[in-house]
Design a protein around this nucleic acid. Structure first.
Lengths: 238, 238
DNA sequence: TCAGGATAATCTGTCGACAATCAGCGCATG
DNA sequence: CATGCGCTGATTGTCGACAGATTATCCTGA
């Protein structure tokens, strides 16, 4: 019934930390459907633990905005709305734009070479078999590296521990068969070039434009799909 | 020994939520000194509660990066470093710049009028009795309103629930006798004017410059104070 | 005198149980 | 027939207690 630990390390010291990772993954990948109520007793029984660590994990999930809690009532998995998706794009535009600027100023030559090698791999992949789902993960990989390259620990924390999980959640819920991969790859290359030339100003501008274009593409898809039916809340595919 | 609930509402339904608010305030205001170890039994006894709710509150504090936890060892209040302070300024530059742009596009006329009235009040205050500490809170007030005006809920959440508490914590630890208040007020007015004219582009540019200048001022103060002694970690005034 | 190891005390992590609160449901009543 | 009320069942919030781990202490020996 549950996809058993495909690649998660799950080697933390405490149960609460492990259960937090597993729950986050389960929520992000849609295993626990959006909007569903989370019952502490059944979850604790399912994972074979007590309610104490589970509640601590829930508190962390609440902090990262993956679940919504009401006192004395319980917790529900958040229901993704198109509004919130667009809000995330706006924040990513600001934050990753800054990350690109910092990366251009600070990234080591070795890291830049790695980045460009990753891009070459992406290019060959997309040339080989078009727009596959894996490409989407590759996109996150690219952004992930640039954020890491910024060297700003709190920036890395916000992006990698909150927003990227949200982004992955949206992609798992939606099909996300982006018809924009070729353009996106090209934009990635421009950004990488700007970083390679240590042009922070340009790197930020290009990154912001890149994310803005992605957001517009999603926006168009939303209004296209949304003709007549509300996509504001997703079907709960239990 | 403890400043008893000066203005915190503390009317949440659950103990864990109340204790989270109180602990956060205590940490931010330096009541629990930076770097000090947090012992669950003594804190629980001090607040007259059990360890369960306390641990849930600690998990939330961990998520907001106000405490640092090591498994089987315990939690310590974070020690503020000048590096991290500068990192926060960088993030604020990106995020609040975007907030100013959005606010210029979306803020209602009434909210804009309120904002300008707040600025007028600040101006009169700073003209009356120079650079008071209270002025610093007024600065946060101004930024707070613009972030609220952006209408982006997640942006508001990140800024108001994480970064502003950190900023307040730095101000409580440092003396923060800013000699920049007059310039800052002027910059605030320019930003408010841009918002009033619904010029998002300009508002973002001005806000980013404003925060960048504030960061540079802090930077200068740091290197000035730091001549000979490390300010990287603060004295623990137990 | 100082290094090293064994012991003890304390603390964290986890669990099961009790009490308070809320959602759902049936029933009475206008 | 619709609506308000009380009851029941289950769930959440909270507590105290136990097990494992870590830190501090003290004793021994070189």
């Amino acid at each position: 019934m549950f996809v058993s630990a495909d690649d998660v390390s799950d080697t933390s010291a405490t149960i609460a930390d492990r259960i937090f990772d597993r729950l986050r993954q389960a929520i992000v990948e849609g295993e626990i459907p959006p909007g569903s109520k989370i019952s502490e007793p059944v979850l604790a029984a399912r994972y074979g633990i007590s309610r104490g660590p589970l509640r601590e994990a829930m508190r962390r999930l609440e902090s990262t905005n993956l679940v919504d809690r009401k006192p004395n009532v319980g917790a529900r998995v958040i229901t993704l709305s198109s509004d919130q998706l667009l809000e995330i794009y706006v924040i990513r535009e600001a934050l990753e734009g800054m990350a690109a600027r910092l990366a251009a100023q600070q990234m080591s030559d070795a890291a830049i070479a790695d980045l460009q090698q990753l891009l070459a791999q992406h290019r060959s992949e997309v040339a080989r078999d078009g727009q596959t789902y894996f490409q989407q993960e590759g996109d996150l990989d690219f952004h992930f590296r640039i954020v890491q390259g910024s060297g700003n620990r709190r920036l890395i924390d916000i992006l990698c521990n909150d927003l990227y999980h949200l982004a992955r959640m949206y992609r798992c819920q939606f099909g996300m068969k982006s018809d924009r991969v070729r353009d996106a790859i090209k934009e990635h290359e421009l950004i990488a070039d700007a970083i390679a030339e240590h042009d922070g100003e340009l790197a930020e501008w290009l990154m912001r434009r890149h994310i803005r274009l992605s957001r517009r593409a999603v926006e168009r898809r939303l209004v296209a799909e949304n003709s007549g039916q509300s996509v504001s809340t997703f079907r709960s595919r239990h």
